[in-house]
């Protein structure tokens, strides 16, 4: 079709205009698609819950359920965006962050949090170096890191659960209590601190993505690593930063998770890698990298939470949810791949 058109317009190097429209539509769908799904889910939710979907307790439970996944997504977004698919070491980063924070509770509350975050950043640096500099296979490498760090935690702490009040000295019990309370605080008695933190992290993430040179560079790296290299972008450093941000976000989620469970162990965070990836893909971030937005990711996280919520309203148990989630996940991924192929990438 396009060939015929081109041949007709011999005077100027005209391009097929039809193609542009498809592109614009796809772009629009990529930007807003997930919010359409969110609205749909709200409608469905209102129907199945008999109007209680917007009840205070339900909204609270949705937000709390997605808060941790959201925090992970705020960082994992950059890994997917940079064209490295996903980070399989998210669970162990969460666990490591939580364990280090609890272990260092004697440094005071702030000290504990800082150490926990540094632990996450450390894993980010390791991943960033091997993937950004040495070009290791991102998935296989992060899987290996997951196993290694898990081994380290288990050996050092003998596979035990860590309780902040056991570790804290007499005079530090307040810190321990403060640590536990972060996951149970409601600002104004309504909205959970976790949800606030998640939103703040998304806001920072949005700034980083849209307003900084790093975000712009990462877009080029994600689209085509070689092009980025030949545009004078220091890919190693950018990927390092991306993984460090990812490590920090996962560690934050890990700290909140440890506080929520009131204990830290190597198991904290199991399953969050898949949950976060599902939410990110739902949000329209392309697995090939270079495409996606934080707004979409938030939409993906919300959709993911609401889907779970609706499934419980329908009366499906925790277990059968997996089935629905799996099918939705595959469908979304297929849509993602398909639309990319239509755009001529893949």
């Amino acid at each position: 079709m396009s060939e015929v058109k081109k041949n007709e317009n011999t005077t100027a190097p005209k391009v097929d205009t039809r193609k542009t429209e498809i592109n614009k539509f796809t772009l629009l769908f990529n930007k807003l698609g997930i919010w359409i799904i969110v609205v749909l889910l709200i409608v469905v939710g209102l129907i199945v819950s008999g109007g209680q979907f917007f009840g205070k307790s339900n909204i609270q439970s949705i937000l709390e359920a997605v808060a941790l996944v959201g925090m992970v997504c705020a960082g994992l977004f950059y890994v997917t965006y940079s064209g490295n698919m996903t980070d399989m070491s998210v669970p162990i980063t969460m666990a490591f962050g939580g364990v280090m924070a609890v272990q260092c509770i004697n440094f005071g509350f702030v000290g504990a949090i800082v150490v926990g975050l540094l632990a996450g950043a450390l894993i980010g640096v390791i991943n960033g170096f091997m993937i950004g500099k040495m070009r290791a296979n991102a998935i296989i490498w992060t899987l290996a890191v997951n196993l290694l760090i898990s081994g380290v935690i288990r050996v050092v702490w003998q596979g035990k659960m860590l309780y902040a009040e056991d570790i804290a000295r007499e005079d530090m019990q307040d810190s321990a209590n403060l640590f536990y309370s972060i996951s149970r605080t409601y600002i104004g008695g309504v909205i959970s601190l976790m949800a606030i933190v998640m939103l703040v992290m998304f806001f920072i993430s949005w700034i980083i993505h849209t307003k900084t040179g790093f975000g712009q560079k990462l877009k080029i790296i994600g689209t085509n690593y070689e092009v980025a290299k030949f545009s004078g972008i220091n890919c190693t450093r950018q990927l390092m930063i991306a993984y460090v941000i990812n490590g920090l976000c996962s560690a934050t989620a890990g700290i909140f998770y440890a506080a929520l469970r009131k204990c830290a162990s190597y198991e904290n965070g199991t399953g969050y890698d898949f949950d976060a990836l599902t939410a990110i893909l739902l949000g329209g971030v392309s697995l090939n990298g270079g495409k996606g937005s934080i707004a979409g990711t938030i939409g993906g996280v919300l959709a993911y939470g609401m889907l779970n919520n609706i499934l419980s309203w329908v009366g499906l148990g925790t277990y059968s949810k997996y089935l629905v989630q799996g099918i939705v996940f595959l469908f979304i991924v297929w849509l993602n791949t398909y639309s990319n192929r239509k755009l001529g990438k893949a």
């Binding site: 689209t223 085509n224 001529g344």
Partner: peptide, 9 residues
């Protein structure tokens, strides 16, 4: 196409 332009941007 390979190392010059990020075609999808």
């Amino acid at each position: 196409k390979v190392v010059g332009l990020a075609l999808n941007q």
